[in-house]
Design a protein around this nucleic acid. Structure first.
Lengths: 133, 133
DNA sequence: CCGATATCAAGAATAATTCTAAATCCATTT
DNA sequence: AAATGGATTTAGAATTATTCTTGATATCGG
């Protein structure tokens, strides 16, 4: 366990939360993390999971993703990306821009606008997998 | 008051909620609507405001907009557009794509993906108004 | 006008998240 | 190593936006 990541001192709990997000990249909720992490930290509390996720988020180590008013989900992907929620499977997928595309270039914003944060969420259906039939 | 809009039967309450959203396009929350609408409907309940907003949303007459986990906001703008939250003033502005830009063209999605819903939210700072100095 | 159905109102219930207070941990100094 | 002080963890209470429940009220077709 590193002593710190991005200036955030690592504790056992923060490290295990971070590790779980890195290993299970399906955008779990705080409660999902709480349930899954009990293998390794049987005594952790839900409040601590929230604390850890908040600390990791505040330091830019993980990203909080919201779909409408559903429970927040968390992912450790640093690339600028959006999220696609597949109605059919209920799974969430990272979506990036096509190479060379810059968000500021496609949006109609006054010149000089500073964008500090972007959230793009999509819902729909992915095509049936070409491998699957 | 029309008998219905987009297949939704208009009631006094729904009509006033709708009218308020059309007239005050600053993306109010349900509670904002509740407070503002008391002039016209002193006996309306917050639950009814929620009911009306839900009915209007379900019929595509207004749109529910979420910023992180803040209270939902509502707007009657039907154009495909995103929302920019200006940190300096706290105001929310509609943002559209530049003419000719199609979201599906700039995102890296598998061919055949069906997008049913898009939400784009931005945070940042608008430039100081060029008129203002 | 009458009955069926939809809507409204008031307050209780829900659920995600945050807060509180006490216990514990950890790094540093004595 | 013990003491100190600050950060972290824990458990449970509190908060808050929203939804649900129930009974009352309004509305529509006949």
């Amino acid at each position: 366990m590193p002593a710190e990541i991005s200036g955030l001192r690592m504790t056992r709990q923060r490290w295990e939360v971070y590790r779980l997000l890195m290993e299970q990249r399906d955008h779990p909720t705080a409660n999902d993390v709480f349930i899954r992490i009990k293998d390794r930290l049987p005594n952790i509390s839900l409040a601590t999971v929230y604390n850890c996720l908040e600390a990791l988020t505040a330091h830019g180590i993980v990203r909080q993703v919201n779909f409408d008013r559903e429970p927040s989900r968390f992912c450790p992907n640093h690339e600028e990306h959006g999220h696609f929620h597949d109605r059919r499977s209920g799974t969430i997928h990272d979506v990036s821009f096509k190479p060379g595309i810059n968000l500021a270039d496609v949006l109609d914003l006054p010149p000089g606008t500073v964008i500090t944060n972007v959230e793009i969420t999509l819902r729909g259906e992915l095509p049936a997998s070409p491998i699957a039939h």
